[in-house]
């Protein structure tokens, strides 16, 4: 079972890495050829290939360069160092988690309102949809500026941007989930003359749990994107977004790529974590194994 699932993944990974190495050659060789023309020296093809995989500031760094940088900036550096990706990752992660918390809470509350009030259904849902059509990169600087002018800075503005991205999938999923009980289940509660609160608590909320988790997986990844985007416009000095920005200022492609990979690994970790909590929760709620 393990072998069957791991082999295809490794095969695809192998193909991607091979393609990556191959792409590095034309991407990086141009610069070397330019240098050689100036100095009048020559290189063999093999030398060209080796050179394109080991430049200090390549246009496209080779996989092993990114891996080495990742290793160097995580394991080899103290976690309190400004050069540690763990340090920057934690800054971004804390904004992500706070934003995810705010976004999820807001999303669930909005969904409960939408399901219970026709007015909210008609008025809130269109705005929630419109909010997601605005590019986050356009609205993020404004959120930061506005919050800064009222004295809020640091973690919270980033968390707000992250919440802005993550509440939407939660609203959509929860509205569907809260409406999932059928007429018969609602009638059953009417025969007990259950209150609205009891109907919400005993039927609608438990019924929406599977929908919630599907939304949370999308929401947590969106939260991370939001936190990183929130670090870009301020020229922040801390966080994965700051690493990306600094890398592009100084042409440090290896740094950019390693920050990108750190973000991707973090996102994957968060989605896997939500998936684990989902499995545990649903198992507890009597899901057929």
């Amino acid at each position: 079972m393990f072998k069957r699932s791991i082999l295809p993944v490794l095969a695809v990974l192998g193909v991607i890495i091979a393609l990556w190495y191959a792409t590095c050659i034309p991407m990086n060789a141009a610069w070397t050829i330019q240098q050689l023309e100036r100095s009048g020296e020559t290189m063999t093809t093999t030398e060209h290939i080796v050179d394109s995989w080991s430049q200090e500031r390549p246009r496209l760094p080779a996989p092993h360069q990114v891996a080495a940088e990742l290793w160097d900036t995580t394991v080899m550096k103290s976690v309190t160092s400004k050069k540690s990706l763990v340090y920057h990752g934690w800054i971004t992660l804390s904004a992500t988690l706070l934003g995810f918390g705010i976004g999820t809470t807001l999303g669930v509350l909005l969904a409960i309102g939408i399901v219970h009030s026709r007015t909210m259904d008609m008025s809130v849902m269109p705005w929630a949809i419109v909010s997601q059509t605005i590019p986050i990169i356009a609205i993020a600087p404004m959120i930061i500026v506005v919050l800064y002018s009222v004295g809020v800075q640091g973690l919270l503005p980033k968390a707000v941007i992250s919440a802005y991205l993550s509440f939407f999938p939660v609203v959509v999923g929860m509205v569907k989930g809260l409406r999932s009980p059928d007429a018969m289940q609602l009638d059953l509660l009417r025969t007990y003359s259950a209150s609205n609160a009891q109907r919400l608590w005993l039927l609608r909320l438990p019924a929406s749990v599977p929908y919630l988790f599907a939304s949370l997986k999308i929401g947590v990844a969106a939260s991370l994107v939001g936190a990183i985007v929130g670090e870009l416009p301020t020229g922040a000095v801390r966080g994965l977004g700051a690493r990306l920005l600094a890398g592009s200022y100084y042409g440090q492609t290896v740094q950019i790529w390693s920050a990108l990979f750190a973000a991707a690994i973090l996102a994957a970790g968060l989605v896997i974590l939500v998936g684990l909590i989902e499995r545990m929760t649903l198992r507890k709620m009597g899901e057929r194994p």
């Binding site: 289940q185 009638d187 059953l188 025969t191 039927l203 438990p206 749990v209 709620m285 009597g286 899901e287």
Partner: peptide
């Protein structure tokens, strides 16, 4: 009264 529906309609999470 107690009402029994066509389907058992038990909550799967209970």
């Amino acid at each position: 009264y107690g009402y029994v529906f066509q389907a058992a309609g038990l909550y799967p999470w209970r």
